[in-house]
């Protein structure tokens, strides 16, 4: 259905520093000419507008266009599994760092751990500058 080369998936978490991840994912989708899919890594789903709209006002119009059209997915009990399934039809998975103190805890949180083992496509962790 979807050409997997043209889909970027972002796992959005309601943690405090999600902006860098949304920004990075939208910009990357623009440069690839790809469609963006948003998955809430933690309920509520679908990803609320407030998660997507905060801190992206200065992005170019093309990135906003990608964000407007981004598909939003329902999470089942396990978001890691949802993201892993989407990885089979995607070019790239983008995860946020969730702003935890220790980078190791960040990178290898439960969702991240599932994905490094089960993702069928490359996984990017977009960390905020401060973390």
């Amino acid at each position: 259905m979807n050409d997997e080369q043209h889909v970027v998936v972002a796992g959005v978490s309601p943690g405090e520093r999600r902006e860098p991840m949304v920004r990075w994912a939208a910009t990357e989708a623009v440069s690839r000419g790809a469609r963006l899919r948003l998955v809430a890594a933690v309920p509520p789903h679908p990803v609320p507008d407030t998660y997507v709209r905060s801190g992206v006002a200065d992005l170019p119009a093309t990135a906003h266009c990608v964000l407007d059209r981004a598909g939003r997915y329902a999470v089942s009990a396990c978001p890691g599994e949802t993201l892993a399934r989407l990885s089979y039809e995607s070019a790239l998975l983008v995860l946020g760092s969730r702003g935890r103190r220790r980078p190791t805890a960040t990178l290898f949180g439960s969702v991240g751990r599932t994905l490094i083992h089960h993702s069928a496509c490359p996984v990017v962790v977009a960390r905020s500058r401060r973390s």
């Binding site: 998955v39 679908p46 407007d68 059209r69 598909g71 939003r72 997915y73 999470v75 949802t82 399934r85």
Partner: peptide
């Protein structure tokens, strides 16, 4: 699965675009 969904406040034009894109 997983399935693409929308919220109750999503504009119908956005819905139409997502339906066509996906």
């Amino acid at each position: 699965s997983p399935v693409e969904v929308v919220g109750p406040a999503t504009d119908v034009r956005v819905i139409a675009e997502r339906m066509l894109a996906g």
